[in-house]
Structure formats: C-alpha cells, structure tokens
Design a protein around this nucleic acid. Structure first.
Lengths: 153, 153
DNA sequence: TTGGATATATAGCCTTTGCTATGTTATTGT
DNA sequence: ACAATAACATAGCAAAGGCTATATATCCAA
C-alpha cells in the first residue's frame, strides 16, 4: 500500500530496466578508471612530438598536479608497459604506449573538431573535449566523425 | 642541445600553452568529483517520480554498487543538503536537490537525444550519455540542444 | 503479535589519486 | 672541476569511493 493507494499493477514504465541502467553506470565507472592513463599517455606523446622530451616537471605543469603525483603515476604506466624511463631524460613511449596515444589523440581531435563544427568556441571545445573524449564509444565516435565531415564539406 | 641540434628558437607551436591545458585538466578533474552527486540525485528523482520511493537497496541495485556504499554516499548528500531521510521509507529530495536533479536530468536527456539524432543507437546513446553528460558545459549544451531541434524539425 | 524477511547502520579494510616535506642524484655554467 | 640548480625519488598523510561481514531495526503476514 503505497502513496498512490491504487491498484498493484506495475507502473514502473518510465525507467529503464535496473540491469540496463546498472550497465551504463558500471561502464561510466570503468571509463573513469582509464581516463588518467589515457591523459598521461596522450600528453606524453604530445610533449615528445613537440619538444623531444617529456619530463616529470613538464607533465606535472601541464596536468596541474605536483611532481610526486606524476612520479607515482609514471610507475604505474611503466608497470603496465606503456612507457619506459631514461634517468634524467624523461620518459618515452613503448609500442603499445604509442598505439594508445594514437587512438586517444585521434578520438580527442574528433570530439574537439565536432564541437567546433556545431558552433562551440575553440576554448570551450578544448575544455569539454578533455572530459568528454573518455566516454565516447566507437559507435558514437564514428557518428561524430561522419557528422563533422559532412558539415565541413 | 637537444636531439634536433638546431637553433634555440621556440618550436613549441603545436601545443597549447601549459596554463591553458592545465585549466582543461583541472576542469575535468573537478567535473569528475561532482559526477557521483549528480548521478545519485538524478537517480533518486527518477525513482521517486516513478515508484514513489527511493530506498538504499533500489539505488544500490541501479547503480550496481553495494548497499553500504550507498549508505555512505547518502550521508554526504544529506550533509550537503540535497536529500532528507525518513527511516525505512527511503530518501527524498530537498528543494536544492530537486533543482540539481532537474538540471542534471535535462542535460542528460539533451545529450542522449542528440546522440540519437546523429544516428547512434538508443542503447549506445544511453551508455555514452551517462558518462558524457557531466562534462558538457552550458555553451556546448546549448549548441547540442539547438542542433537536435534543427534535425527533428 | 510475533517471527521471518527486509532495510538500514556500522566497523574495518582496500585502492586510487592527490598532497607536502624532504632527501638524493644528474646536469651544467663558470 | 665543482658548486648551484634542476630533476627525480621516497616517505607519510588524507580523502574519496569501493568492498565484506555483521549487527540492528522495522515491517508485514500468518
């Protein structure tokens, strides 16, 4: 007997099934865990391409965190096989690191280009893309790419 | 004298300014911290609208987490003034909770509707929207809304 | 009205991602 | 060559967000 004190028939129609919704939330949590790795690898690739070096201090400055935070994270990236380290000359990417960087970078650029294509300012596009990119599935990425290409044509 | 052993002039052109990039990362980290609150409040609103009750077990099931995890989070939501609690009858939203739920829900729906409008399947749209919504700025939201309206017309 | 099922609370633990403070070790300019 | 600077390492702490195990409180049906 609930607040509606009406029939006992099911009226739970406007919500998706619990399991379906749970999957979405689990996926979002999972994505959140991979975000940092992708951010680091992508940033390292950019620094290497641009200046030839990716040192802890540079990474820390660009991410806006302290150097020991970077040091700890780099250990994880080394353990997971994404990067290698040369003492006092920064880090560089392994082959799987390069591959992850390539994929992340491409996705990032597609998202950012898309946002610009619908009229978002470049500054906002950059800010939002940094957060959005990690939650874009391959299917959505493909749709964004196609759309942007259409607009540009 | 670096790997390029060329002039000392600045060639760091393809990267944005460190401070600018840092701001994007900081914004993304900040958004990540508010995600959970928004997820909870939005879900609670949905449960209340749909079944009249939002109990810990329901929330836990839909989020895919354990009940004590929900209990801890609800304490935070109470402390922050978003919800109130009636023993053994679940939680309900305060006025600021309702407002946050309204905003989150609207943003969620705009993102999901937009994804569908560019040809993403409803299942994928639901999954991706759950992650993307928290990283969409007001400016981008407005652009998405406008675009979706155009397509539908 | 009472006993079993259900809902909530609490304790204690883990991991991740931050921080500060403080060594230690290369690099480099003079 | 060597001292100053810069880069890196490490220790120790905190907060957030998970978990399991277990106790307690409420509800409801027989």
């Amino acid at each position: 007997m609930n607040e509606k004190n009406s029939q006992t028939i099911e009226v739970e129609s406007s919500l998706v099934a619990p399991d379906t919704q749970m999957e979405s939330f689990k996926q979002a949590r999972h994505n959140r865990r991979s975000e940092l790795v992708e951010d680091y690898v992508e940033l390292i690739a950019d620094l290497l391409a641009d200046g030839g070096e990716a040192r802890q201090v540079d990474i820390a400055q660009r991410l806006g965190v302290a150097q020991p935070t970077v040091a700890k994270m780099l250990k994880r990236l080394i353990a997971e096989g994404y990067i290698q380290q040369r003492p006092y000359r920064g880090v560089f990417l392994t082959s799987i690191g390069k591959e992850l960087a390539r994929v992340s970078r491409e996705r990032h650029q597609i998202v950012e280009a898309f946002l610009c294509s619908i009229g978002v300012s470049v500054e906002t596009a950059r800010m939002d893309a940094e957060g959005i990119e990690h939650h874009v599935s391959p299917e959505t990425l493909e749709a964004l790419k196609k759309f942007t290409a259409t607009v540009r044509a």
